[in-house]
Amino acid sequence: MLKVNKVDTFYGKSQALWDVSLDIKEAEIVALIGANGAGKTTLLNTISGVLVPTSGTVEFIGQKIDGMAPHRIVGMGLSHIPEGRRLFVEMSVRENLEMGAYSSRAWKHRAETFEQVYKIFPILKERAGQLARTLSGGEQQMLAMGRGLMSRPKLCMFDEPSYGLAPRLLREVFEAIKSLREQGITILLIEQNVRNTLDISDRAYVLENGRIALEGKSQDLLKKELIKKSYLGL
């Protein structure tokens, strides 16, 4: 479904990704783990078109998308829920969700999608008329996820959805991600919370200093010495 092939990405003169390849099949949950500054967010930005790789290709449902404008990539069904939520805090919850359905394909079906999103996150329906900035941290994260879903994505990329959340909310967020997969949405998940992430994902890639250091089935990775030492602190 998504194929990243030998990608190099630069910020100005400094290279952030070296020869990164990644392959995601339909209805998979794939995790991307790594320390701060390993290049996880850079990779997501490269996929969603915010950054353009200097070499290598990105393919989504069989079409080359590197170099394409971000809004067109969203239109194809690839949704990116960025780190730190990036909500429109002075707009209402409903308007934030509407913004998610901005691409013309999703706009037509937005009434229907609203219902689906409200079913996954009932709290958003209760808060529909409130300004986004009046929501709690957990609610804001759910709004960010709900907004990503409003584009009716085939593939969702979550960048640290657990960031700054209390443990109880964390579980809710992970449950929500699992329920998305049951609806046939493919997921690429960035997380620092490695244990939980490997538990819900099928496969995982480990990024280190801008390179893929390790990849494989999540259950296998949990047993690997490197993972245990570096990420699980065992």
Partner: peptide
């Protein structure tokens, strides 16, 4: 309005 509020996020959501 979304551009005025958060231009980068507006681009992300497909505007």
């Amino acid at each position: 309005r979304s551009i005025g509020e958060y231009e980068a996020a507006a681009a992300h959501t497909g505007v």
